[in-house]
Amino acid sequence: MRIVVGMKWVPGTQSVRIDPKTGTLIREGVPSIVNPHDLPAVELALRLRDKYGGEVIALSMSPPPAIKGLEYLIGMGVDRAILLTDRVYAGADTLATSYALANAIRKIDAEIGKVDLAVFGQETTDSSTAHIPAQTASWLNWPYVYYVRDAWLTEDGKLRVERILENAIEEWELDMPAIISIAMKSIKPRPVSLLNKIRFKTNPSTLITWTNSYMNLDVRCVGLKGSPTFVAKTVDVPEVPRKKIVYKPKDGEDAARWILKSLLSDEKASRALLKALRGSSGGEGS
């Protein structure tokens, strides 16, 4: 089977800087990483290929530095990688992003070979919308399901998946081609292997770049122009008023006593605390 796996190149740092005028991230000087939630998706795709044969193609719409991330996935064992990149794709919201990705999948299908499955991460760490898989499914009219943690094929060539919701575990069967997104942290990704890195060094053509002169998408459908939503303004998160009383205790007992005293002399806190302490011992919640 031929599996496309989505990868987003996201800022890896905790020191976030935001342009106060546009409300967008300042990416310059911020080291990026493969979206951590994409790694379980890559791992699942590789396992399916290892079991059933075929190939895994990584796909990322991003400025060129994302090549580093695609190289990392090749190091994990992905067969080839496509960087979808063009200035006209910049400023895309999730509708415009999914439009470009869906069309790239169509292009892979037409030029490289039939795509059976697209696998995405649950969400990205920088926007965490979880929009892309469903939106891509909408463009392609493929069945899809979220929060998958295992997948396999049935004898009659259907995709079976197990997925996990807040309060249920479900098994689904999907006709292929299909789209699945993988529950974060559900599958441990394999490390990069030296052998794969060498394989890539000797055959760099496994990583290709598609620009819009190749994709030929209507510029009104991509990037900022193809995005119905935009950030109208940003405001500071209003500060929550707090008492800010700081105590340097003599020892642990003094600290504990001070905390309980403070809580019991605070009107709201004491009510909740006394209720909990009077109630049956142990137990959770209110």
Partner: peptide
């Protein structure tokens, strides 16, 4: 948005 220092409208 990313970072939670600002609120995006």
């Amino acid at each position: 948005p990313f970072g939670a220092v600002l609120l995006a409208y």
